[in-house]
Design a protein around this nucleic acid. Structure first.
Lengths: 340, 340
DNA sequence: TTTACATAGACAAACGATTGCGCGTTTTTT
DNA sequence: AAAAAACGCGCAATCGTTTGTCTATGTAAA
């Protein structure tokens, strides 16, 4: 027989009704032990497996989590998806995947696809230049909860998991200050990102604590492309008060910044030192690694986001409404480079 | 209204039958232009979206591809999944994800989950120590086609996409031979992997062409862990005929091997040079990169595997049977490290 | 005018499983 | 021994959509 066995076939072969079979397979108390055994035996013999698509349809639940990330090939996100998949799996959920390529249009379209697939919930790290959040709001009407992580939108009532970049930045700047740097530059990311704003806060707070005044010229933004980073470096290095240290948005940007500096004949870790974020494994192997990097625990963020979502899904809609929004903050942590 | 609109509601509001609505939405010729317009207008107004789970169920097709990879956080696989997702998306397929963590048990369980989800097809790169292939064979009975890529099982009748590691190895060894190395070691991967066997073939062929005899002591295997690699290095370096160059299974292994060699006070690229596989982006930034690396085009492999699977799914079962098995071989390519 | 044939749409079954309700039979209670 | 409760199972609706078949109306051909 080519088609997988169904509950109907079992019923027919045993001359009982489908409902009995269904209940027998679920160990329902109202089914006698005898028939229960017979059904379960035959099911095993026929290699019966319930048709999930039928169940999904009937139960209006798919046990599937949608995950939307900017770039799967970036180490940060691939670590995150790893944590997400592991945790989802542990809770019997499957993972439906989409990458936005940092493109808002594409992000919208994926959200649409996920909605039509009737995913039970979504985990999203938004595209870097998404400014319109309608496609997220829309999901509320469909009762599809979202947990954002790392790259979170600037919206009031959302669930999210993120690293506290403010404290991480304070750690980073303090580290530099303690090493006698006084003119500290910063290459930040897109202003829209909450994480960028937090970095600014942390930077300013740390400087203030040392009674150093904030020089806005030392704070530049990169769009995270190589060109953007080079422009940022150029701007920083053309200052009258040249920075002796630079805090950089992430390790990828740092690699580009380092290359630019070397090209300008600056001696890394002598004329100019770098501290960055992410602490990718590669930075341990790299020729001129940043002195230190703020670890953001992508795997753990993914884990936590998934656990949060699963917990949310365990609640009824009313309960969901009643929950105050989850705002899970993981502490980031400055990690000194062992090869420094 | 909390529930999404259905075809039924549209039918009721317009006082026509559901079948008419369905056909109108699909532009079926037997529906008059007037009603067609009215239906489509109302559908738009109500923000109607077909319930995919119902359609999946009804059509016995989910437009979902299952993807099983060993480790998402490895650069090779994250690049591959990126290619897979992009290509699947282009063909209106979604991607259901699972990672085996190189664990055969887990791999089996994921296959099971995917089957129950009724994915239309599977793309798999097998766990490194999977020796039993029953769970793959089983899928044939359910008419779920599989396309393997990169890490392919040693089975006769399968579809697969892979890089030709033999020619890549020949290129690598030739490169070393031309640079006057005569004693060339190799750290290979698990013997079960087809790719490992191909590397051996390539190595031997290249040596033969130079009329050099094959010294089996120069060929060792690593289980890809740091410890395994260190053991392999130790074995190689303790030879009477010490290698002046080593071909290493991949860039991760190479990084470990390099560290071991440095620890042993060997001068990289002087006393000992390395050539490896994968050409991960990080190797451009690394302090002591391999001289060259055999690029395996993970993104393209993912793309190609997905295209192959989609093509397969376009065919009826009979046609599928009739197709000879796809064996897509991408040429690998030796890439010299620009920072060498 | 009658026959024939498109045209436009309705009816209903089917996909596979779950579940509220009802009904007959057995067992327990008093 | 009669009434009540418990047990064991079947009936049928339901989830939303697609699709084969049938019917009614109108139009063209004979």
């Amino acid at each position: 027989m080519s088609n997988p066995p169904t509950i109907k076939e079992i019923a027919k072969k045993l001359n009982i009704s489908v409902s009995t079979v269904s209940r027998a397979l679920h160990d329902h108390p109202s089914i006698g032990l005898r028939t229960k055994m017979r059904v379960q035996q035959l099911a095993k013999d026929l290699n019966y497996e319930p048709n999930q698509t039928a169940i999904f349809f009937q139960q209006r639940k798919t046990f599937t989590l949608g995950v939307i990330l900017p770039e799967l090939s970036e180490a940060f996100f691939s670590a995150a998806i790893s944590g997400i998949e592991d945790t989802a799996n542990k809770h019997k959920y499957s993972v439906l995947l989409g990458q936005s390529h940092d493109n808002e249009e594409r992000e919208k379209q994926i959200v649409e696809t996920m909605k039509n697939h009737r995913v039970d919930g979504l985990i999203i790290s938004i595209a870097k230049n998404t400014v319109n959040y309608d496609h997220f709001e829309m999901l509320k009407k469909y009762n599809i909860p979202i947990v954002f992580f790392d790259r979170i939108p600037n919206l009031p009532n959302i669930h999210y998991v993120a690293c506290d970049m403010e404290s991480g930045t304070i750690q980073a700047v303090n580290f530099l200050l303690k090493n006698n740097h006084r003119i500290i530059g910063m290459i930040n990311g897109p202003e829209k990102l909450f994480a960028s704003q937090q970095r600014v806060e942390g930077y300013i707070k740390a400087m203030k604590k040392y009674r150093l005044k904030f020089d806005p010229n030392l704070m530049v933004a990169s769009d995270l492309t190589r060109e953007g980073t080079e422009a940022a470096m150029q701007s920083l290095l053309s200052q009258r008060r040249k920075p002796t240290a630079i805090v950089v948005f992430n390790d990828y940007v740092a690699l580009d910044a380092v290359q630019y500096a070397r090209h300008k004949k600056l001696r890394i870790n002598k004329d100019l030192v770098f501290v960055s974020y992410s602490n990718l494994p590669l930075s341990h192997y790299t020729a001129f690694p940043p002195l230190a990097s703020v670890e953001q625990f992508p795997y753990q963020q993914g884990q936590k986001a998934t656990e949060t979502l699963v917990e949310l899904l365990g609640k009824s809609n009313d309960q969901q409404e009643a929950t105050t929004y989850y705002k899970v903050i993981l502490e980031s942590q400055l990690v000194l480079n062992p090869n420094r």
